[in-house]
């Protein structure tokens, strides 16, 4: 477990983390999360009335997540507008957040979560989920737990967390998870690669460990804004 990574991190080290809530004044809740050079911002609007009416669900709120990348966020410009990739990420993001919410408390409404990747350098979906979860909490929406997310893999026989740069090509697998540490449940799990079951289990365990670190940072970011207002 002593191999150095290209940016000098140890295998279980996450890139430098920065989190801040309340970055978008118009939104009911908002957050910025940066992990190294990846920067995600998220805004939550709602619960608010859902139009057109036929989309309303009579016994719960609808959660809508939209993930998008700014055209200038990558080396080669991304065409603005939805793509197949962004649509899938929007879906899995929604499914990773839904279990944390009490949607049944807000029938017929919508909770809209917009995630914008301003700068991309690996791990954008996980950064987006971290930001979205913080923004939901910042909006004052009751949650079972904060959702926290990170990807892990295995490089040269070593489980490695928060892959960045060329590591995404060197790893045996890329496995992002989203996790609710307090209730110990996984809400997002994707994997692509080629690995035996034992290793997959090991990778998930490491990712969970990383999530717990991010969890503490999320709580700090929330306290930084809200403790000031006497809600500690």
């Amino acid at each position: 477990m002593s191999t150095k990574r290209e940016d000098g991190r140890g295998p279980e080290d996450i890139r430098p983390i920065k989190m801040e809530v309340g970055v978008i004044k118009n939104a009911d809740g908002s957050a910025m999360v940066s992990l190294g050079k990846t920067v995600a911002i998220a805004a939550v609007y709602g619960p608010r009335e859902l139009h057109p009416k036929h989309l309303q669900v009579s016994n719960r709120a609808r959660l809508k997540c939209i993930y998008s990348m700014a055209p200038f966020s990558t080396t080669e410009r991304v065409r603005p507008g939805p793509s197949r990739r962004s649509s899938e990420i929007s879906k899995v993001t929604r499914e990773s957040l839904e279990p944390a919410l009490f949607l049944e408390n807000f029938p017929k409404t919508t909770i809209d979560v917009f995630i914008l990747i301003v700068q991309a350098n690996a791990g954008t979906r996980t950064a987006g989920i971290n930001a979205a979860s913080l923004a939901l909490a910042d909006a004052g929406i009751e949650m079972r737990d904060l959702v926290t997310s990170v990807a892990a893999g295995k490089i040269d026989g070593t489980y490695t967390i928060d892959l960045a740069g060329k590591e995404e090509e060197a790893t045996d697998c890329d496995l992002p998870i989203a996790y609710m540490p307090r209730i110990d449940k996984i809400t997002l799990l994707q994997m692509d690669g080629d690995m035996p079951v034992k290793d997959v289990k090991g990778t998930i365990e490491l990712a969970k460990k990383g999530c717990k670190i991010l969890y503490e940072e999320q709580k700090k970011a929330l306290l930084k804004k809200w403790a000031k207002e006497g809600l500690e």
Binding site: I24, K25, K37, V39, A70, P71, F72, S73, T74, T75, E76, R77, V118, Q119, A120, N121
Partner: peptide
């Protein structure tokens, strides 16, 4: 503010916030 862009700027006028990125191809 955005490293991946060829040039970028974040402007705030009061509470209005806009980010502009320049990419080249």
């Amino acid at each position: 503010p955005i490293g991946q862009a060829e040039g970028s700027a974040l402007v705030q006028i009061g509470n209005t916030k806009v980010v502009v990125g320049v990419k080249m191809g």
